[in-house]
């Protein structure tokens, strides 16, 4: 089966439906599937529940799906840096489920591994714990969190071989590997396709079993939110 598709629209063909749940990798604007997000935007699919650590910024990343009101609900740990998000949330147009970042990562990991729930100390004694099962282990209180799966996971990697074995680069890895495991269908976009055998089998981050389709994205913007530098000292 050939996993490579010609472009982002082809990569999503037949996979989209209104009311679906979509996971999108990335942290801030780092390691986000920027081309596949544009394809989602152009498809017009609506009432989406998006599981992603952030929601892009105004006009870029997942932010473009807010402009067209395609997102019904977000499950995220951090939504700052996005005015439209705040507006839509405050006006009640957009549902938001806050999920602590580590809990979010673990919920994806668990979902992808067939684990429906787990216990964690994170959030005990906070609003996050409200309505959740509490259980004591060795004298400490934990809350139950559920595993997450999505109808579709969109991830961004650095390189892929034709089998969909993925390698990420630096901190652009973030949520991508766990989300790749938790999609009923996973579509990846990569900067470069390499030949079979060019990736070191000992250093593959996402084995191809998790990747159903992928594209090679062109003209990546890979925007930076905050550029901080230091001076060269003489």
């Amino acid at each position: 089966m050939i996993k490579l598709r010609n472009n982002e629209n082809e990569a999503l063909e037949g996979l989209l439906f209104d009311g679906m749940t979509i996971m999108a990798g990335g942290f801030g604007l780092c390691g986000i599937p920027e081309h596949l997000t544009i394809a989602l935007h152009d498809s017009g699919v609506k009432d989406i529940t998006v599981i992603s650590n952030n929601c892009g910024i105004d006009g870029f990343g997942l932010g473009i799906l807010l402009e067209t009101r395609q997102i019904k609900k977000m499950i995220s740990s951090y939504v700052g840096e996005n005015k439209m998000f705040e507006q839509q949330y405050m006006s009640g147009e957009l549902e938001l489920e806050f999920c602590p970042q580590g809990t979010l990562a673990e919920r994806c990991r668990a979902g992808g591994a067939g684990i429906p729930g787990f216990y964690t100390k994170t959030g005990v004694g906070t609003v996050i714990a409200e309505g959740k099962e509490h259980k004591e282990f060795n004298g400490e209180t934990y809350i139950m969190e559920t595993g997450l799966v999505a109808d579709l996971s969109l991830v961004k990697a650095y390189k892929s071989d034709p089998e969909g074995n993925l390698v990420y680069r630096k901190t652009a890895r973030n949520f991508n590997p766990v989300m790749a495991t938790a999609g009923k269908v996973t579509v990846a976009e990569v900067e470069e396709q390499v030949n079979l055998g060019d990736l070191d089998p000992d250093n593959i981050h996402t084995p191809g079993i998790y990747v159903d389709r992928f594209i090679v994205g062109k003209d990546y913007q890979k925007r930076i939110e905050i550029t901080t530098t230091r001076e060269h000292t003489a």
Binding site: F27, C108, A172, R173, T227
Partner: peptide, 29 residues
């Protein structure tokens, strides 16, 4: 400056000879 290399505050940073990278799930483990 490298757009694939940021900290949790989304600022650009650099790596050191001892640096390692991992997923968010490993990070929170």
């Amino acid at each position: 400056v490298d757009s694939d290399l940021i900290n949790a505050g989304k600022q650009t940073i650099s790596e050191l000879p001892q640096s390692s990278y991992f997923s968010s799930a490993d990070s929170f483990a």
